[in-house]
């Protein structure tokens, strides 16, 4: 490589921009469209990490990803107003997470309430529409419902614990290409 080539390469990383420590970035720079390569790279990397984790740790992979998700849930929800009403808590969580894990509270047509009591357990159905986990898995051709989905499981449980102070469990009922059905079991 000649000196000229190196200088040309280095030139791409040199700008006239002045960054001050008090500057708060208010917009995405560069434009999100330009981040497509980064996004795909991240999705690929995440998929490969999960695949490798599964190979090395087997079923233990679920525990790792669940814990990671739970921490994320606690982290995000600690700024929320604490409330006891689980439906209100879920609605607020869905609004704030729009774009990452957009979900709606759902019920079959024959049920009168969103909080369903069946066989001694109390649960709420959640339909996850936009989900970064599903997109990552489909980007890499990996099956849904595996360890990466456990992050979402941990995430919702962590957030619900943080907001309502109640223990909860999330069960994957069904996974689809456009939405997934989960059961939030309240304890």
């Amino acid at each position: 490589m000649t000196d000229g080539t190196i200088e040309k390469m280095k030139g791409a990383f040199s700008t006239d921009l002045v960054y001050r420590s008090e500057d708060v970035p208010l917009t995405c720079i560069p434009n999100p469209e330009e981040l497509e390569d980064t996004l795909h790279g991240l999705m690929k990397l995440n998929g490969l990490i999960i695949r490798s984790l599964e190979e090395v740790a087997g079923r233990g992979a679920n525990a790792v990803t669940y814990r990671a998700g739970r921490k994320y849930g606690h982290e995000v929800a600690k700024y929320f107003e604490k409330m006891e009403n689980i439906e209100e808590a879920l609605k607020e969580l869905s609004d704030i997470l729009r774009g990452q894990f957009t979900f709606e509270i759902w019920k079959p047509a024959d049920k009168t309430s969103y909080i369903i009591q069946e066989n001694g357990s109390t649960f709420i159905y959640l339909v996850f529409h936009d989900c970064i986990v599903r997109q990552t898995l489909r980007r890499n051709g990996q099956a849904q419902g595996g360890p990466l989905c456990q992050t979402l499981y941990g995430y919702v449980v962590g957030a619900i614990e943080e907001i309502t102070g109640r223990k909860a469990k999330l069960e994957i009922v069904h996974t689809g290409p456009n939405a997934c059905l989960k059961k939030l079991i309240l304890q």
Partner: peptide, 12 residues
């Protein structure tokens, strides 16, 4: 159809 949640698994 009133019970469909739009997962589109059937489509796939």
């Amino acid at each position: 159809p009133e019970n469909c949640m739009g997962c589109l698994s059937c489509h796939e």
